[in-house]
Structures are given as structure tokens and as C-alpha cells.
Design a protein around this nucleic acid. Structure first.
Length: 887
RNA sequence: GGGAGAUUAGCUCAGCUGGUUCAGAGCACCUGCCUUACAAGCAGGGGGUCACAGGUUCGAACCCUGUAUCUCCCACCA
């Protein structure tokens, strides 16, 4: 069969992904093996694959594939998140395009549209994950609004409500005027903004005096119900008991005194607008002030304001500044930097707003989750996130869990209209419960809460409910077989951005409902940024489409590219050139296979095999056996520490440098008369074995090409696939000495190549090398002859006159050259080397001459220094001798 | 305002408990090669005052103190 010179990924990717699916290699059911479980961080059902997903899911796939090869029952559960606010916003926008207003639809009709949209476009992202090679058990695909999952959410609400952890109340919440819903503190992103600090003059009642108040939000003036100053501020002490007139609306409001006000900021006076600022709200409560809500839920000026009604809040801000200027009430305007909150989902400026919401009390319920991380039961990788986590958990605020949306699980709270509230699954159950509080309640008077629950209130159950949706209702003791088997899961791979949103809350829910942690390890990936350090995002347009990258470089190339530059927890500066490197690596592997595949195997009988194997091949095989094992041990160690890029780089160098550049060059048959000689069977078999081991080690990173080569290499049975092949094992005992010897051998070969380059000799010209040594025959002699293309490698007791000479460690080598060596050049080289060694010796002598060093240093260190001394001395002696002979 | 982390080659990063010739890797770069696996390659090479300033130590990229710069997280200063 003709094998292409460059690897073409497209066909292999399509073939093998289907093959894996058809043969159910991704499927997992409980059995007597040890499970290894990962649950996917469910992407938004509306989402499309971006670079963050790519990174995240590649890591998960690497982990799951390796676990599978290690013999674990590997189970990777995929799924999507209903993402209430994001999805609802999308559906609303889509309906608008069709000329339909959400406000004109009933709840049921809107949900019909939403589900229709979800069925049509939802889950595209899962199809994209397949292109990446993700080996999820697709039969287990879950969605946070699946019937069972939703029921679990309802169960959880009812349970926590009945336990007294959930309460309802009017609070200042983060209001998203675009999404028209409250959002939690975690969903607000604070960004630095350039704002105008407007100094507004308020006239004091019955006086010609004015007091100046600095504000960044002049549009809320209509909601002012007091002016506040610090009681210790002497500038304003005389105003005690007086009142001021609020401009525009001419409302008379009191001057109040409170320690809260910072004397240093602005003019030391604060306008109090209890409806539009959390601090002002607190002041309002304390001083029993009136609350005037001057904004509508859309962020426009409300009727209550009495002026500018219907104007957008930002337009109003501009207008009111103009009007106040005209009235002569603006003292000055300063530019300042402050933080403005934006909605995570809609990017609208968040408005603090008073409203009736549901909250989850966090203090008690979060305690076990804090402990789990602090005591190391749940490991965060890298560890630096433990501090962040701890800090958050110790200062956690109550969680606003209600959202004024329709897409999501509707809050199962029921009201009788008389002030009684119960939590129940159905209207009928609610009736029963309400009867206890209000005997005369009628079923038609009962109303269910209109709001839905925060999306994270469903995804915090994810690692449990993907296996057993009944876990909340039934409890751990009655958990189903799946949950008992797969849970706790092993590794969670996610972004640090959602450490609080999701990870912390999953641990909380898990502790509450199973008493166990949801996962052993949390691997926090970095944020994918571009070369300029900007976060890759759709809005910036600086993110390549992952599918384009896959088309261009192959899935394997992109996977390798991503992981080459991704240290755990540190952001990664992504650049397409990494994918290129990944693709090049795949091609290198492909060509190594092509070489091996092209070998003609000698057809000698088994008794003659010994005779036909070159000594150099024999040496190369023993060396590589050791090398492979040595590096595999390092790779395993990197994996155990979740050091993914290190594990990959070690693999990369093992394959490219050790296998391709050294091993294959060593065993490659010579050419005679333009034709390659056949390779002996022993070497061939060993090489195939090595390649198979390497393919296995590479498989988690590069699943497609490895599977492709695996099958091109041999006829195999249906189930004999690399995806389920056994992870290679280590040799019983490493021969460290031999590995060291080979390093010297490599150095020697490099030196010879160097000499060739320097003297401009053809690589084809055979050279002879002498080693000045008493001993004869080292294990690698034939290997050196082969690799350095020598005519002979000999030992000598005496110096070889007129030859090029050099040293490796303390041994001297000679290469006789046909042309005479340049004495002057040679001298300069030797002098330079001599100087370096003398300098080195001097530094060692200083150390050894230092009494305190000799007294304090560890014995091993001393031994090493003494060895350095003697080595340097002998080297210097030999160099001097050489120099002498040149004179 | 509080906290965490970072700063090592042009770029991305290793560097464990202070001690091998410790200053590393990959990429990029330079030079020479289309040598019958691979130019997506081969051979060779150059490149760093380990952010700065002090200190501890026989010995510091590593420990301590300060300074600078950057990143992230948290926080209700208008």
C-alpha cells in the first residue's frame, strides 16, 4: 500500500471516531474494575466551542484515555447546561427577529419556543467536541433541565426550604436591566470605568447657604431622601437639624449624621438614595428614611421620580447635568476612576435594586465544604487557589437564587394570598400543606411563585444527579448502583473563573446530600489569551474558531498545540504556531512509521538470527529499552502531579529525540548500491514493540494518528485498538550506568559531526577515531561507528600524533585527518579550553580552601567538589601536554 | 481598600529540600544541507547581571526585608 509522505488527518479522524463509537469503547457500566470518573463542566446548551472549551476538554480527554489504558473503568459524562439567562436572552432576541414580543406570550408559549429552539440548535457544542476526539460516554449525555435533573432541583429547594436554609425577602439585589432579572453577586463583573464626579449644590431650607454633594449618579437625585454627613465633621456641625432642598424635584429632605460618611471623599457629604445603593439603603433603614424608586426595571426613569419620566438612565444622567448647569447648581465636575458592575451574561450595567427575592443562607451549609478543601480532602490544583477559596468561603454572602425568567426550574413555592408560603412539588401537595396553616384555603386561591431558580442552583447537583437524579429525594443510603460506583468522581477540570459559581457550590451540595466530596481533585486550567494577553472572546474577535484550527492542523495537532503551552492555573498565551508544532510532531511520528513500515525484513532462519543482528542494533535496543522506561517513569510522575505540559513535553522529546534521532538512526540498515539492506528479524521485532509502546504513550494526546498507525502496523482483530490497549509498564530495573554511557557516546558522535562540519568534510567520508584508554571494547563502540559513520573505533595507549584531538569528560580522543591540522587554530582552541578549566579549578579550590565550607557542607557535596578538583587537574595536565606537543 | 500570585533566553515556561559545570527545555533565530522516513526535515551554532536594592549563609535563581512592574481574586466608599 502506498503511504503518503505527509500525514493527512482528515480521514483518520472520521474513520476512527466512528469506529470507537461503533465498538462502544467510550461506554462505561459498573463492573468489578476500579472506576475513573470525570463529569464534564456542562457548556451552555446554546454555546459553540471556543478555545477555553478546547483546552478544558482536551485535558479531560487525555486524563480519561490514559485512565482507560491503565485499566480503570473510565467514564466521562457529557452534557449541557440550560444557562437560563443566556438562553432566555437568545430566545427573546430570536423571537424579536420574528416580530414576537416576549411580553405578549404566555409562559407556556414562551417555553414552547424555547424548547423548540433548544431541540434545534442545542447541543451543537457536543457535536463539536466529537471533532476534538472527546471520548465521552455519549449514552450518558445529560441536560440540566432533563426531567429527572429538574426534579432533583425542585427536591433540593423544598428540602433546603424545609430545613430553614432558604428564605424570601426584600433586599437590595444586582438587577440586570437588560435581562430583566436579579443576578447573584458572582454574576457581576466589576470593571474600572472613567466616570464624572459631579458636585451638585443643594440649597439649605430657609437659608441662602448651599451645601455641595459629590455624586457619580446625578440621575438618582429624584430619589434622594436625605443628605448625610459625618458627625465629627466640623464643617457641617452647624447644620444639625436643618433640611435641604433637592434640586429638580424641590423635595425637602433632612440632613442626617452618620459615621459611615468618609470626610475625605468629595465634599464629605453624601446624598442618600435608599432605593439605588446598598449603602444608602442601609442608611435609610437605620435613619427610617423614605425609599423612592426612581427607576423602572428596564432602567428608565419611573413615574415616582416626578421628572424625566421614561428617559433612559444614562440619557437622563447627561440631561440632568445640563439642566443643573443651567440652574447654576453645578459647582464642578471631576473625572474619576471607579468600578462599575456589569452583568456577566448580558453585559448591561448592573443596577442595585430593591426587590423581593429568594436567598439561600450560606453560613452553615458551606462549612463542611470549606473544611473539605482546607484539610485536603478535595485537592485544588494548583494549590494557590486554596487561599482564594478559603477567603471566599469565609466571607460568603447569602446566595440570591431567584431569577425573573421563565427558562429554568420554576420555584416550587406556593402562596395562599394570606401571607402563608409552602414549598411543594405540586399544587395538590401545596394545598395539603397550606391547609395546615390556613384551614379555609381554596385551591384556586393558591399561586405558584413566578420566578425560576438560578442556573447554578441546578448545576451544583451535577456530579450527583448525572448518575442518580433521585439522590436528593432518596438520600445516599438509597443511592442507585451508578452513583455508588462512580462517585466521588476523580478529577474535575474547569476554569478558575467558576471556582465560586460552581466548584464551591458543588462541594456544598455534595456534602449536604451524600456526605461525601463530589470529586478528589480540581484541576484549574488557565484562561486562553492571545499574544497580547487579551482574553480570547467572541466580542473582541481575537479567538480563532477551534474547528478551523482542527481543519487546518488536525485534531491531534491542535490538542498537542494547546497543551504544549498550558501550565495548570496559569493563563496561556495561545498562538497558532503551537498548533503548527503539534502538526509537525504528528508528521514526525507518521514518518517514523513510514520508515519502519518500509523495512525489508531478512528471511533468515531463527538459528541464524543471532548472527545477522549487528552489534550496534543490539546495543541500541538495550539502550532504548532503558531509555523508554526511564522516561515513562518521569511521564507517569508528571501525570500524577497533574503536570500536563511537562508530561507532553517529555513524551515529545522521547519520541522525537531519543527514538527518531538516535534509535532509528542506529538501527536503520545501510545502503549498498542504492538499495537498503534488509533488517534482521530481532531488531525489527524490537523496533515494532518500541513503536507500539510509544504509540500508547502518545495516544492520550494524539488519539487519531496513533490509532491509525496502530492498525497500519499489523492486521488486528476488531477489538484490538490502541484506545483500549494497555499502558506500557516499566522495566524491572533501570541500568543507569548504561544510560550514562550512552550520553557519552552521543557526545562523541556530536563531536565527530562537529569536526566534519568544521573541516568541511563530507558526511560520507569515513573517519577513524581513537580513544586514549587502557580498557578495550565498550558496549557502544559499534553504535558509535554506525552513528558517526566511522571506518573504525580504536583504543590507544599513546597520543596519536598530528591528529585532531578533543576531550569528553576526562577522556581524550583523536581523529587522524587526511589534511594537516591547522596548528595555530588548534593552539587557540586548546588555550581557550585550558583557561576555562583553570578558572574552574580556581573556583573549586577557593571553595575547598574555605574552612567553613569544609566544616559545614554535607559530605556528598564535599566529595563532589573533590572529584571536580581532581578531574580538572587531570584535564589541565592533558591539555598542557597537548599544547606542548604542538610547539 | 484587602488578599493571592508572578517577574529566569526574542516568545512560552521548567528549575523539588539553598550545594554536581546550575543557569535549563521547547519554539523562534543564525549557518550549512532537497543525505532514498520526514524541508512539517537533518546537522551544527549563538543567545540570559535569574526585575531592582539590601540582608542571612561557607554557599542564593531558590530563604528574609524593602522597591518597581504585571496579573488575578475579593470588597457597599458616593
Amino acid at each position: 500500500m502506498e503511504i503518503a509522505k505527509t500525514y493527512n488527518p482528515q480521514q483518520a479522524e472520521a474513520t476512527w471516531y466512528k469506529y470507537w463509537i461503533d465498538n462502544k469503547f467510550f461506554k462505561s457500566t459498573p463492573d468489578n474494575r476500579t472506576p475513573y470518573t470525570i463529569v464534564i463542566p456542562p457548556p451552555n446548551v446554546t454555546g459553540v466551542l471556543h478555545m477555553g472549551h478546547m483546552l478544558n476538554n482536551t485535558i479531560q480527554d487525555v486524563l480519561i484515555r490514559r485512565a482507560r489504558m491503565l485499566g480503570f473503568n473510565a467514564c466521562w459524562v457529557p452534557g449541557t447546561d440550560h444557562a437560563s439567562i443566556a438562553t432566555e436572552a437568545k430566545v427573546v432576541a430570536l423571537l424579536k427577529e420574528q416580530g414576537i414580543n416576549k411580553a405578549d406570550l404566555s409562559r407556556e408559549d414562551f417555553l414552547k419556543h424555547a424548547w423548540g429552539w433548544k431541540e434545534k440548535y442545542g447541543g451543537i457544542i457536543l457535536e463539536q467536541l466529537k471533532k476534538l476526539g472527546a471520548s465521552c460516554d455519549w449514552d450518558r449525555t445529560s441536560f440540566t433541565m432533563d426531567e429527572g435533573m429538574s426534579e432533583a432541583v425542585i427536591d433540593t429547594f423544598i428540602d433546603l426550604y424545609n430545613k430553614g436554609h432558604i428564605y424570601r425577602g426584600v433586599r437590595m439585589v444586582n438587577w440586570d436591566p437588560q435581562g430583566l432579572t436579579a443576578v447573584s453577586d458572582e454574576e457581576v463583573i466589576h470593571k474600572e470605568a472613567q466616570s464624572k464626579l459631579v458636585y451638585v449644590k443643594y440649597q439649605i431650607q430657609d437659608s441662602n447657604e448651599f451645601m455641595t454633594v459629590a455624586t457619580t449618579r446625578p440621575e438618582t437625585i429624584m430619589g434622594d431622601t436625605a443628605i448625610c454627613v459625618n458627625p465629627t465633621d466640623e464643617r457641617y456641625a452647624h447644620l444639625k437639624g436643618m433640611q435641604v432642598i433637592v434640586p429638580i424635584v424641590n423635595r425637602v429632605v433632612p440632613i442626617i449624621f452618620d459615621e459611615y460618611v468618609d470626610k475625605e471623599f468629595g465634599t464629605g457629604t453624601l446624598k442618600v438614595t435608599p432605593a439605588h445603593d446598598i449603602n444608602d439603603f442601609n442608611l435609610g433603614q437605620k435613619h427610617k428614611l423614605q425609599t423612592i424608586d426612581v427607576l423602572t426595571q428596564e432602567g428608565k426613569i419611573s413615574e415616582a421620580a416626578g421628572a424625566y419620566v421614561g428617559l433612559d438612565r444614562f440619557a437622563c444622567r447627561k440631561q440632568i447635568i445640563l439642566d443643573l448647569t443651567e440652574l447654576g447648581l453645578i459647582e464642578k465636575i471631576e473625572e474619576i476612576k471607579n468600578k462599575v458592575g456589569y452583568s456577566e451574561r448580558t453585559n448591561a450595567v448592573i443596577e442595585p435594586r430593591l426587590s423581593m427575592q429568594w436567598f439561600l443562607k450560606m453560613e452553615d451549609i458551606s462549612k463542611p465544604a470549606l473544611d473539605a478543601v482546607v484539610n485536603g480532602d478535595v485537592k485544588l490544583i494548583p494549590e494557590k487557589f486554596i487561599n482564594t477559596y478559603k477567603h471566599w468561603m469565609e466571607n460568603v454572602h447569602d446566595w440570591c437564587i431567584s431569577r425573573q425568567l421563565w427558562w429554568g426550574q420554576r420555584i416550587p413555592a406556593w402562596y395562599d394570598g394570606q401571607g402563608n408560603t409552602v414549598a411543594a412539588k405540586t399544587l395538590n401537595e401545596a394545598l395539603v400543606l397550606l391547609k395546615v396553616k390556613n384551614a379555609s384555603v381554596k385551591i384556586e386561591e393558591i399561586k405558584q411563585d413566578e420566578d425560576v431558580l438560578d442556573t447554578w442552583f441546578s448545576s451544583w447537583l451535577w456530579p450527583m444527579t448525572v448518575f442518580d437524579p433521585k439522590i436528593v429525594a432518596n438520600g445516599w443510603d438509597k443511592a442507585n448502583e451508578d452513583l455508588k460506583y462512580y462517585y466521588p468522581t476523580n478529577d474535575l477540570v474547569t476554569a478558575p473563573e467558576i471556582l465560586f459559581f460552581w466548584v464551591a457550590r458543588m462541594i456544598i451540595a455534595a456534602k449536604e446530600y451524600t456526605g461525601l466530596k463530589p470529586f478528589n481533585n480540581v484541576y484549574l486550567t488557565g484562561i486562553v489569551r492571545d499574544k497580547q494577553g487579551r482574553k480570547m472572546s467572541k466580542s473582541l474577535g481575537n479567538s480563532p474558531d477551534p474547528l478551523d484550527l482542527i481543519a487546518k492542523y488536525g485534531a491531534d495537532g491542535v490538542r498537542v498545540g494547546m497543551l504544549l503551552c498550558s501550565p495548570a492555573g496559569n493563563d496561556l498565551m495561545f498562538d497558532e504556531s503551537y498548533c503548527e508544532q503539534g502538526r509537525n510532531f504528528a508528521n514526525k511520528v507518521w514518518n517514523a512509521f513510514r520508515l519502519i513500515n518500509g523495512f525489508e525484513v531478512s528471511s533468515v532462519t531463527s538459528s541464524e538470527v543471532e548472527m545477522t543482528q549487528p552489534q550496534s542494533s543490539k546495543a541500541a535496543i538495550t539502550w532504548f529499552e532503558n531509555k523508554l522506561s526511564e522516561q515513562l517513569e518521569i511521564i507517569n510522575d508528571h501525570y500524577s502531579k497533574h503536570r500536563m505540559s511537562d508530561a507532553l513535553m517529555t513524551t515529545y522529546k522521547l519520541v522525537w529525540d531519543d527514538f527518531c534521532a538516535w534509535y532509528l538512526e542506529a538501527i536503520k540498515p545501510d545502503f549498498v548500491d542504492g538499495k537498503a539492506l534488509p533488517i534482521d528479524k530481532t531488531t525489527f521485532d524490537a523496533t515494532i514493540n518500541f513503536l507500539e509502546s510509544l504509540l500508547k504513550i502518545m495516544h492520550p494526546w494524539m488519539p487519531f494518528i496513533t490509532e491509525e498507525i496502530w492498525h497500519l502496523l499489523k492486521e488486528r482483530t476488531d477489538k484490538d485498538c490502541i484506545i483500549v490497549a494497555e499502558w506500557p509498564t516499566l522495566v524491572a530495573e533501570l541500568d543507569k550506568k548504561q544510560l550514562g554511557e550512552f550520553e557519552v557516546c552521543k557526545e562523541l558522535v556530536t563531536m565527530v559531526r562537529n569536526v566534519r562540519a568544521q573541516k568541511q568534510l563530507s558526511p560520507k567520508e569515513k573517519l577513524e577515531v581513537f580513544e586514549k584508554s587502557a580498557a578495550n571494547r565498550s558496549y557502544f563502540d559499534n553504535l558509535i561507528i554506525k552513528l558517526a559513520n566511522l571506518s573504525a573505533f580504536n583504543y590507544t595507549k599513546d597520543k596519536v600524533e598530528g591528529a585532531f584531538s578533543f576531550q569528553i569528560q576526562t577522556t581524550e580522543f583523536y581523529i587522524p585527518l587526511s589534511s594537516n591540522i591547522n596548528v595555530q587554530e588548534e593552539k587557540e582552541r586548546l588555550v581557550k579550553e585550558l583557561e576555562y578549566n583553570k578558572g574552574f579549578l580556581k573556583s573549586v579550590m577557593i571553595k575547598l580552601g574555605n574552612e567553613k565550607f569544609v566544616a559545614n557542607a554535607k559530605p556528598e557535596v564535599l566529595t563532589i567538589e573533590r572529584k571536580k578538583e581532581s578531574d580538572a587537574l587531570s584535564k589541565i595536565a592533558s591539555l598542557e601536554e597537548q599544547l606542548q606537543s604542538l610547539n
